[in-house]
Nucleic acid binder design. Structure first.
Lengths: 214, 214
DNA sequence: AAAAAGAGTTGACTTATATCAATAAAGATA
DNA sequence: TATCTTTATTGATATAAGTCAACTCTTTTT
């Protein structure tokens, strides 16, 4: 089911030798999920180091109005919620598969004992942690610091695929209603910052948009 | 100016021996700041590993309306913005001293070379990084997910000193105006969740408050 | 091509929070 | 204690974004 080659393809473990990979294999297991299935719930106790192998995992919270707020989307092969495992606390948000997929679950206590002293592994974990901080900083910059207009401007400038998404979905990514997004894009069109070409928008004045969020 | 004992008192380095501490000393320097002085600006290139030795450092962003949004307050002896240094990027926010204080600046390239392979140091850094993630998660939970009322409820339940602060300052911590905070506390008083005793509030029904944010 | 379904847009209205201005209370200073 | 200064509260109003409902445009299905 889970092969050594599969482990090796995970960048955290690329420098491990055969013996180490075998040891790792013995403390790991693979779990598959279908679309929509829950990987873990907020408040569950974090037990395993979890790495997405296939599919997309979303991390989300539910606000008091029952809106789902997606904080992060993880693609293969990233570590999910390692903070909770390291800190020995419960998950601060829930996680669900947005597509079919699978994860690798590693027994954390044993991992710590056998692998954390390995410089390469430690380095890869540093990288993963710092990137997560970078990502969270960005979430804060986007959602706490900016208003809706600036949020749209920033997101469409920094994410090429943003305007290719369904309006609906983009609105959800940006934590606003489709109506609000539609109105903002209309405003940008009037200002000549974007243009509507065959049913999807294109940026025509990136400089102007940039001014809105900087 | 900067002594070995001072280095040793920093938990990241408590396991280092004399020789290592001397080496560390040679790649470090101490800088002192007066109240209000800037440690770094958003967009500055991150060059040194920075540890607060004395005083309080606030990390903040400026929103489009020129409000200062404080994301974090660091007390001795914590690492500041290590993410930017590790990632080799510019600081995602600005930092200023809220009191008099000092920091230790460590040449990161040399630190990486000499110390990062040290298991104890690496472990302490893990700890620092995961705690930062925990903190940022909390900022998001507080500011993105919750509305003002829930935010006040959560903050006063989880921070004993919250109601001892000046209303003004608490409002700033919670990213809302003093007026809004005042109105929310008045509402809580009416509901019997808090009580005003000689010019400061006290929680009388923590369970009720908890329900508001969970 | 017509019909149906889904997605996007628009207008009217509501709500949460900010803003501004006036007052009240608390704390500091003389 | 009286006066000054700062901080907190209150009311009125403004603003940004959400909600709801109608409508229009796409896309898909038949």
């Amino acid at each position: 089911m889970l092969s050594i080659d599969e482990l090796k393809s995970i960048n955290f473990f690329e420098h491990l030798d055969e013996k180490e990979l075998k040891l790792l294999l013995s403390i790991s297991r693979k779990r598959t999920f279908s679309q929509g299935e829950i990987l873990f719930y907020e408040k569950d106790k974090a037990q395993h180091l979890t790495i997405v192998l296939e599919g997309v995992v979303k991390i989300y919270k539910i606000d008091p109005k029952n809106n789902e707020i997606v904080l992060h989307r993880f693609r293969p092969k990233s570590l999910v919620a390692e903070m909770a495992v390291f800190e020995g606390i419960s998950y601060p948000a829930s996680a669900a598969f947005e597509s079919e997929g699978s994860v690798l679950e590693i027994d954390f206590e044993k991992f710590k004992e056998y692998f954390l002293a390995n410089t390469d592994v430690a380095f890869a974990l540093f990288k993963s942690l710092t990137q997560k901080i970078k990502y969270l900083d960005n979430v804060i910059a986007l959602n706490v610091v900016l208003d809706s207009t600036a949020r749209v401007a920033k997101y469409i400038c920094e994410n090429d695929d943003a305007l290719k998404m369904k309006n609906n979905q983009l609105a959800q990514y940006l934590h606003m209603t489709p109506e609000t997004l539609s109105r903002i894009l209309k405003k940008f069109t009037k200002l000549g910052f974007v243009e509507k070409a065959d049913s999807s928008y294109k940026i025509v004045n990136k400089e102007a948009l940039t001014i809105l969020f900087e």
